[in-house]
Design a protein around this nucleic acid. Sequence first.
DNA 1: TGTACATCAGTGAACGCGCGTTCACTGATGTAC
DNA 2: TGTACATCAGTGAACGCGCGTTCACTGATGTAC
Lengths: 217, 217
Amino acid sequence: MSWSGHGRGGRRGYHHGNLREALISAALELIARKGPAGFTFAEAARQAGVSAAAPYRHFRDRDALMADVAQRGFARFEARLAAAWDEGRPAPLPALERMGRAYLGFAREEPAYFSAMFESGLPLAEHKEVHEAGDRAFGVLRGACEAMVAALPPGAKRPPALMVALHIWSLSHGIASLFARGDAARRSLPMEPEELLEAATLIYLQGLGIAGPATGR
Amino acid sequence: MSWSGHGRGGRRGYHHGNLREALISAALELIARKGPAGFTFAEAARQAGVSAAAPYRHFRDRDALMADVAQRGFARFEARLAAAWDEGRPAPLPALERMGRAYLGFAREEPAYFSAMFESGLPLAEHKEVHEAGDRAFGVLRGACEAMVAALPPGAKRPPALMVALHIWSLSHGIASLFARGDAARRSLPMEPEELLEAATLIYLQGLGIAGPATGR
DNA sequence: TGTACATCAGTGAACGCGCGTTCACTGATGTAC
DNA sequence: TGTACATCAGTGAACGCGCGTTCACTGATGTAC
């Protein structure tokens, strides 16, 4: 709503000028407030200050909008993970920790995107763009694990990077969706989710022989 | 639907005789087919072969039914985890592996319960019974970790059992909800989810110094 | 064993509501000349 | 620089639909005597 000085919804005449974006914002706001189920096409239109028929100019139906939100969510997620990883600087381990924090941060700060991505019930098979956007985000984590494995000293035994990436993804995702999510379904925890994840990651890497008992901070 | 030889819905006259149960079955079936959002009070009634007003004799509203389903789900989940753990027989490690498999099996075979429990968006703060049922289920895992830690040789250093339980819960939950779930949102994986979980658990326990490199199978 | 009665789990009609979707339309915008 | 026109993003009225919820009611069941 920052592109113009007009009232609610930001109309600037007969043509909205930015309806597609406004509908996405409205969807995010509704999902954040009422969950993925509590967003309707009609209410998104109302919130954008537009008639109920207008959204059909931009999205085939409700699901198409939801898929668009999920896809954008994955793109933002990917960017955030990549920024946190920062090509493994200054060293793979702390960069990986940073990426774990980014995962939890995303779930906490962007609950609407998070649930559109993971809990909207969109059948992935029918939404290739969403599926692929998700794969690209996972690719960042996978790349990080490959770099980490590649950086091991020559003599060390090398665990399969894909497996490591899947393990860390699952762990992060479990903690994010149980304890770090930014909505009412969050469970309480006697510590920060970030600490829980960091401890688990270190123990796991230690089990792989990658991190020594004294590593980390 | 096994308690009587009548047609669809199993009516046996003016009184249904088992409406409460029939509504819960209908809810499960609808959730399994269309996700937690795609179940309505009205359709559950229709499926039970009863008028739209009848459910109000048994549940205050839609959410009350959903909460009941979630609570039952947690109770079944708890029972299944406890049976798998079997008090740690014959030894904590294989029993823990069994429990991990039970977690994934539940997500796969009872997708409706699973999503009612974890993805229905019920605010836990407003549904104490659900929250407590969830805590009891987690209690099984926690008890298992306590037993496992207690069984360590006297000299070994003992990790905090609660932390271990939270780590294993998160890991199992992440794998279950990403890869093992029994509905259309499942992501594909180049291996069995069970293998992924077992490998992760072993590596993790190794990192804790509990399982040796040669342990497991 | 039979009858009267209380209780309770259902009915079905009615209501208001919001959603999704279609339709012919119209106002705004940009562009060719 | 002005005008004619094509294009496009909106309108608003209309439709059918299913949901949630209330209401006075009625049929079935169990039990006291």
